[in-house]
Design a protein around this nucleic acid. Sequence first.
DNA 1: TTGTAGGCGTTATCAA
DNA 2: TTGATAACGCCTACAA
Lengths: 354, 354
Amino acid sequence: MTEGPTINTIARRAGVSIASVSRVLNGLPTREETVRRVLSAAEELGYVPNSVARSLKNRRTNQVAFAMADIGNPVYLAMVREIQPVLRAAGYRLLLHSTDADVADELDVLRGLGERYVDGLIMSPLRVTDEHLRALAAARAPVVVIGSVPEETGVDNVRADSRTGVRLALDHLYGLGRRRIAFVNGPPDTVPGAARAAAYREALDALGLPYDENLVEVGDFYRAEGATAVRALLDRAADVDALMCANDLIALGALDVLRRAGRRVPEDVAVVGMDDTYLAGVAWPALTSVSLGSERRGRAAAELLLDRLENGQRQARVVTVEPRLAVRASTAGVRDGTDDVPGAGEGTEGEESP
Amino acid sequence: MTEGPTINTIARRAGVSIASVSRVLNGLPTREETVRRVLSAAEELGYVPNSVARSLKNRRTNQVAFAMADIGNPVYLAMVREIQPVLRAAGYRLLLHSTDADVADELDVLRGLGERYVDGLIMSPLRVTDEHLRALAAARAPVVVIGSVPEETGVDNVRADSRTGVRLALDHLYGLGRRRIAFVNGPPDTVPGAARAAAYREALDALGLPYDENLVEVGDFYRAEGATAVRALLDRAADVDALMCANDLIALGALDVLRRAGRRVPEDVAVVGMDDTYLAGVAWPALTSVSLGSERRGRAAAELLLDRLENGQRQARVVTVEPRLAVRASTAGVRDGTDDVPGAGEGTEGEESP
DNA sequence: TTGTAGGCGTTATCAA
DNA sequence: TTGATAACGCCTACAA
């Protein structure tokens, strides 16, 4: 019992060959009597098939990995929450890699695919280097990338549309009469950082607002860094009446600083976050935020990967998820703070329409 | 190349036997010349060892699973964040199971251990039934339970101390002059629910305060349910001056309701949460919360499991983590709301002292 | 319907 | 130092 029964143990006990055992266990046509004996032997022994042996034979592990920078980031968390049930329903286990956005780590994961410990990989790199592209091209298992990579890379790709997203936010702010709309970004050498910076300029253009570099500050995608950036911004441009933040964490930092500075939100300064994580509904005032569809992107990635795993080779696909604006108190003027609170209260985002 | 090189491919290419290849690859003493030939063949072929075959032979997968109710719950998230790096440093991959606190699912995970797809399991069940205990006793791989199980169960066990935790909170509130301290709990048939309910009574006793059942309300460990419970509580006992909430999510719901009801926090009603998740620093006013050491418990569990995996059989151990009270604006009267904000701003809790 | 035997990719033993 | 060879546990022709 210490060493666990195998089909051999069962075969001996039932007085049949291992082939018969395997057949019965896999539901292949077998004489009734044999079936009974095998099943009861298996039952008595508490037999459980060894998945490693099975994998070696099958050449599939029924495992999928998800690699992201940091599970502590609510955006990735939202993705995991969607990916997990989809995979699970299809009989796959989920393996987690937290890479701290370290390029070497990410490449290791990609190369590790050669070890065949998973059947496929979903990955969401913060930066995409040439090495990434090479490693992706050489990957030994199907990969789905969340975040934009060039079409030629030949991997399935799920994209956000920060361009439209920022546009939605700025239109909204403009509609509220705001004209001095600042932008607080994360590192511009990241994929989202670059995209959002460009999107901001474009949105200003579309609204006929001038680009004022005093209204732009770069920090990092975290609360403390967001706070620092906003502090600098307020010093430089005291007349800002709205802050477009490149993610929700930055926006939280902005709220901290504005509160200390005695600026009312949204009366004096409206604040918009991005990613629409569940932190938006915890902050006070609750944060208006651009949803880039983390949940939908996670689910789409899982579905793309599953499809590829079941149906093999086919053309690489690109899915782009529509952004949406979740308007809450930080821009709406309703100082209630509890609008749009997820029903479960646990960070669960509701289902979204297509 | 499609099918990936194996030691056989290398052996042919290098003109040696597979045994020599294996030896070289595992660093066993081999003639210099052979080493060179094998290594260069491996290099040219881009050889990566197949971990499944290796696992079959070794009887170890270098994988560990963590099973919890819901990765979306910040408490489990905090644990994952600590568990992952510990395992990773020891060369283990992390597999995630989200069971929705479903007993059948949890039992499945325990039985699934027989498939040998992981070397060990860390699990944090919300309820512990007799079936759990049986399944734990019969588990085919080492298990560490986060959450209390009876000593006799014979598994390594990492416990929180809600008793002391609640005591800390009530002492604090009492010290602030609060005498009508209500308690908002989650389901009392869960391990934490039961423990916290008992702890509340005990703490009142110790303070010489009467137990008033009008001051106790039961809901669930979520924000919306917490809100509902607090609403009922205010109706019944308008004179409460403090709320002890059984977790942070409930406390968030409490803040929502108090705000709507026009009660100032902490002036009119002080609020204490539990678990000290990073939501406590996002809420406004920032939430005083009892830390039950999710991070330390996660890390301890990972370390216990690793030790068992490396060193095999030994007596089952019980580790209890000391609670601590993180005082913030929801009780302290400093309406700044940004005290004790994690430096990284990303939910990272600082290192704690022993 | 059933059993024998070979193979999945590694590791490890035992002679040579 | 090296090479055959036998496992690890399962699946599956192929033969009986």
